[in-house]
Simulated assay, not measured.
Amino acid sequence: MCKKYKLCKIVLCSFLITSFMFIFAGCSSKTAETTNTNSQSKIKVVVSFNAMKEFASAIGKDKIAITTIVPNGTEPHDFEPTTESLKNLSSANVFIYNGLGMESWTDKVLKSIDNKNLVVVNASKDSNPIKNTDAEEIEEHGEYDPHIWISLKGAEVESKNIKDALVKVDPSNKEFYEKNYDEFSKQLKDLHNEYTKKFETVKNKNFVTGHAAFAYLCRDYGLTQNSVENVFAEGEPSTKKLKELVDYCRQNKITTIFMEDMVSPKVSTTLANEIGAKVEKIYTLESKEDNKNYIESMKNNLEIIYNSLK
């Protein structure tokens, strides 16, 4: 009787385990299917940092799901990718990065993932880049100034490259992406034309920023920037450099020192106090700031620069 009881117990346990496994497998299968269905309903886009997200969002809208690698409040120049970054890229359809040396980690990351179908977008492709002139910057960061997105003309180039990639990956929605790009491009052109006329009316073309991120904007409107820190926001100025900035500000009647979110305010504030100027915030769009989109941020930048020059 004892052996029969044990045998019955074993058979019953086996039956229950098999049943639970079957039920669990069925549930898991449905969960995975639902997840896949949801994820497949949108194109999975990974972007390097906020400005690329702004352009992708303007064109892809609700057809795409965006993951940003560099968190808000983190300097993209110095960022080191995480395991999560690799995981996101391994399952993505599109990866968008600025290029021109902005994301020094891109090549290393792309070599380390296994995603043969990933469409990689160098958003600054076919642009007209500005060359760095400082030998140390060239050696450490590369030949070009990467801040092309802080230019309405640069934004048009980058958003077109993004649009072309989305059309390639999702040709059935080509008209949708083309329409959104045309609308965004018109916004960029209208804003550019508005401020081209405004900047033509000012005699003083010089302004001072926290770091030298606005060369492309300057090129668009014939302006000149002088900055506390270099193109890659590295290092506080020497006493000699600070004195030169003070002299520059006085000679050019600078009334505003512009300061960016991720650059130390100490030197900018010291400089402003020395010349009796005010400090005003300007956007680099490397992070999402004050809940403004690209057009709103750039309009703010252009307006406060224009007002400082009047």
Rank of each mutant, 00 (worst) to 15 (best):
F176Y: 12
K189F: 13
Y248Q: 08
M21H: 06
P81I: 06
N293H: 06
L191N: 02
F20S: 11
A58W: 01
N301Q: 06
S124P: 12
N226H: 14
T270P: 00
A233Q: 07
Y5A: 07
G222A: 04
E54A: 10
G276Q: 05
N98D: 01
K42C: 14
T255E: 07
K131T: 08
K108N: 12
G235F: 09
Y306N: 02
S185V: 05
K310N: 10
I254Q: 07
I282N: 00
N293Y: 02
N132Q: 11
N252K: 14
N72G: 14
E289F: 04
K241I: 13
T256K: 00
G235C: 11
Q40I: 09
T209H: 12
D247I: 13
C249Q: 12
E33M: 14
E289D: 10
I257Q: 00
F55H: 01
T83M: 04
D145V: 04
I43N: 03
P146K: 11
T133F: 10
P237A: 01
N307Q: 15
K203D: 15
S91V: 12
E84M: 12
E183A: 13
R219Q: 14
L7K: 11
I257L: 05
T68D: 01
T224A: 14
D220N: 15
L223G: 09
G222D: 01
V11E: 05
E234S: 10
K163I: 01
S91P: 07
F184P: 02
N252I: 15
C2M: 10
V46Q: 06
A56S: 11
K44C: 06
N36E: 11
T255M: 02
V231Q: 00
K160H: 04
L217S: 09
V279G: 04
F24C: 06
L271A: 00
S41H: 00
D190K: 15
S85Y: 12
V263L: 03
T270R: 03
L12H: 02
V167D: 00
L152S: 02
I17H: 15
C249M: 09
F232N: 12
I64C: 03
S85G: 11
V94L: 00
G142H: 10
A32V: 15
C2N: 09
N230M: 05
K61I: 07
I59K: 13
Y177K: 02
A32W: 10
E280R: 14
H211C: 02
N204T: 04
E200M: 12
Y248T: 10
A233S: 12
I43W: 04
P237H: 02
G235Y: 01
A272G: 03
G73K: 06
S151M: 09
D247S: 15
T224L: 09
D261E: 08
E80R: 15
E158M: 14
I148A: 02
L191T: 15
K116H: 07
T83W: 04
G276A: 08
L89P: 14
I23H: 02
H147A: 03
V121M: 11
G142M: 09
D126Q: 09
D107R: 15
E286A: 11
